[in-house]
Amino acid sequence: MIAETGLATIFAVAAGLMGGVVLLAGLAGGAHVTATTTAAMCDDATTRSVPAELCEQFPDVTTVERLAGPERGLVAMQAALLMRGIPYSWGGGGPNGPSFGIEHGAHTRGFDCSGLAEYAWAKAGARIGGHTSPQWNAGARVPRSQIRPGDLIFFARDPARPATIHHVGIAIDTTRMVHAPSTGSTVRIDPWAGDPYREREFIGAVRPTV
């Protein structure tokens, strides 16, 4: 696991959070989102549970319909961060949260990469599909220099061929993402910019259309 250098105290693992304060709760099939106040999550430096540099950006709202485009991306990012620590499960996860997967993920309740992305954006009011193929076509392409929180970052075995996309993460900023990496791992934050493997397979970023 790559060290998360430069981050302040991040979200505690989701298992602990689920028993306490819940950041986002889907209503009416994911169409609405409730949120704790930014103050509750950010104000006390000793108990802060989000990256310090992101606290000022978080929207403080009661329903997702009131949000502008950039704020919806922040909601998606928050939803993904809340799942930090949930196990990877091949074929697992969807708009309602973690689930048992298929094949070697059949006995693990969690997320694969596209399941996490689908969940995160469902909380922001967008249906992007449960696999990387529809997710790649779920919005507008975003230049690398303009990536912002919540954008989907895609990786392919051959960056010239979208059909070879095999991984997706949710952007925190232009260098880091929250994602479900692979079997045996958990949802976590990793840098992707500057990582030789990720750089070699980076194919582009998409901002889902709501």
Rank of each mutant, 00 (worst) to 15 (best):
W121A: 11
H32T: 11
G26D: 13
V61T: 11
G92I: 09
T9S: 10
P134I: 13
G115P: 10
P87T: 02
H104R: 13
L152R: 01
G19N: 11
V21E: 12
V168N: 04
E65H: 06
G26K: 14
L7V: 02
T108L: 09
N96C: 01
N96E: 06
A15F: 09
A126K: 06
F100A: 13
G150N: 03
M83G: 05
P95H: 05
R72D: 05
P98F: 06
D190R: 00
A120L: 11
T174N: 12
A15D: 13
P149F: 08
G6M: 08
I10V: 08
G101L: 09
A45S: 10
A171R: 01
L27V: 12
R72N: 03
G101Q: 06
T164W: 14
L54A: 06
L82E: 15
R157Y: 14
I203G: 03
I102C: 02
S49W: 00
A180H: 05
K123M: 15
T183F: 00
F58M: 09
A76V: 02
G194A: 09
N137L: 14
D44P: 00
T5H: 09
P95F: 08
R200Q: 15
V75C: 03
F154I: 07
F58I: 15
R200N: 13
G139H: 03
A68V: 10
S89C: 09
A52H: 10
V210E: 02
N137T: 05
D195F: 07
A40W: 02
E65T: 11
T174Y: 00
G26A: 15
R127E: 12
I172H: 03
